[in-house]
Design a protein around this nucleic acid. Sequence first.
DNA 1: GATTCCCCGGCAACCGGTTGCCGGGGGTAG
DNA 2: CTACCCCCGGCAACCGGTTGCCGGGGAATC
Lengths: 358, 358
Amino acid sequence: MVKRPTIDDVARAAGVAPSTVSRAFSRPGRVSFETSERIHRVAAELGYRTTSLARALPSGQTSMIALAISDITNPFYNEIIRGAQVAASEAGYTILLADTQESGVRERAALDRAASTVEGIVLATTRMSDSAIRMTAKSRPVIVLNRAVTDVPSVVTDNPRGVRRAVEHLAELGHQRITYLAGPEASWADGMRWRSLLETVTELDLHARRLGPFPPTVAGGARAAAEFAPHPTSAVIAYNDLMAIGAIRALTSMGARIPQEVSVIGFDNIFAAELVTPPLTTVAAPLAAMGRTAVGNLLAIVRGARPSNPAPVTLPCQLVVRRSTAHRRRYRTSPAWATTSVSGSAASASRSTDAGSR
Amino acid sequence: MVKRPTIDDVARAAGVAPSTVSRAFSRPGRVSFETSERIHRVAAELGYRTTSLARALPSGQTSMIALAISDITNPFYNEIIRGAQVAASEAGYTILLADTQESGVRERAALDRAASTVEGIVLATTRMSDSAIRMTAKSRPVIVLNRAVTDVPSVVTDNPRGVRRAVEHLAELGHQRITYLAGPEASWADGMRWRSLLETVTELDLHARRLGPFPPTVAGGARAAAEFAPHPTSAVIAYNDLMAIGAIRALTSMGARIPQEVSVIGFDNIFAAELVTPPLTTVAAPLAAMGRTAVGNLLAIVRGARPSNPAPVTLPCQLVVRRSTAHRRRYRTSPAWATTSVSGSAASASRSTDAGSR
DNA sequence: GATTCCCCGGCAACCGGTTGCCGGGGGTAG
DNA sequence: CTACCCCCGGCAACCGGTTGCCGGGGAATC
């Protein structure tokens, strides 16, 4: 490993003081043109690069932000990370990644370690408690993604409107009873979606029930399907696309026809949503925009902007109608698969999916 | 933002010198038990946390490694990142993420910026040139993933064996002519797979041809299908799962039946491979293990281990047979879809996929 | 021609830890 | 009792930049 030249090496080679070299790089205009010119030339020859670490120590500006993600294996995050990354690198910032594996404890530990290094933190779908988040927000600027926390700026999608669009779509198709397959209890979005669902359903004079909580994964969706099957409804809204996909697979393997017998709607519009069979009808979140907005707002705060609006920044979402929803059909009796015992194909489908998706 | 207490604050509160506090934390045994005890107690009361940045300056140990990824929106990386993240955090390291958006230039720029900060670098599917990589490897320990570069330690999957398994599988099903849908030209794995395919095919007395290069995405696969359709073969091996999925979708929309008319095999076994219809037969890469191994080996070098073996570390792969491959059927004439004009449904399928997968 | 001002380079302190070296004091061996 | 050693705490230099302050010298103003 070759030792990188320091500012002193450049100073010596250029015949000036180290402070002059420093200014030549960071204070344009402070140094005369000729001197600055010479310093830059010498620096280039020597291959000098300013060490961000050393620069950060006095100024506190590390040009790094942390991105905490509850489960990096969830494809939900790919586009969000891309959006965040683009916004960050445009501003000259580097992203420090913390995958917390769905554990609030690991999350706190990771942030604790990173807090002194970064200038700000984006918490994407955090599993920490509100008070823990406020705690962290005291030492560093924090933006929360997919969740609203009092006194902490956040970026969320318009869940109420998304739910409403989904329910209206189902209502138009003649569905009257909707089952909601719930995600993790610690998820703010889950509570939000369920409450919005209840409201909308009341307003439109429909019925809703809730099953769960389940893990927000394909396996979780399969488990949910097993609970759903004995007492099915004609329409299902799942906490996210992963669960919707898992539910569709499990139901199909039980013999149910999707969407003819059961209409299924997911959330997020992840990459795989349009690839599965049938292609998934889903409430699309503006994933890249979420990442971009979160980082953008975070950097604004870092640069001294007072977080003027305590209300969450709400990004619009959009119902993407594909093929997992259809007109309700009436049955005289409940379908054959509805009587399938839970220990049967549903459970085994769940198990195989579990193995396959890890 | 509350100012964090420094080592001097703790020293003053505990009635000792700053150096003693430092040693109490980083040199167990160097300080008497009682003193150390008291210091730790005081530090805890004050909420003192050692600043990794300041610690890194004299020692050069930042406890950070960089992970450069060519396209974070590619689901291929999710499991790799997870594996890397787990290995890193177990060793007390933090990951610094660089999404290079398939651009060698951006990649160099990002690494240039990060190089002074990190102790080592993992290049996952880098698009840089061999010489650029060796350049980077001179200033920092580097591990290359999915590629072999002379004099730079690397971790790859056993492409030759994977290809062989795929071809053997196709041969058993009676296929004799195989089309390879190539990925990016800059991809080492692509060259590797094509050469291995040629060898195997010769050995087993079959035929292979190559189409491409194409972008390694669903859209790329669709474009490849459009080129493939006018002169189809009964079997197709795609550079990766994304392309395989894209090809299957495009072919299906042209009217081809998969796998009855065309068998398709992909590479990587990404998350979505088992979710699509038909479920994709693919050469599974040990994604999490790749991430884990890369970081593990990198940290070993960082800690002073000489990279003993210049040969790449080769991880085994596995053929996962699903439903996109079937016995070859013989046709008297070429199928109807094979005469579909390129400007027809194939191209439009490609376009729609392009929009949908972003 | 003298005074004032400004431009620009250098000195040195500082950011927050780490570590080589020193030395006082107590314990142990001779 | 003396000599030696070891334990353990402090001093100060150092990592690689940044920045407040100072001052020399040339230009502009009166």
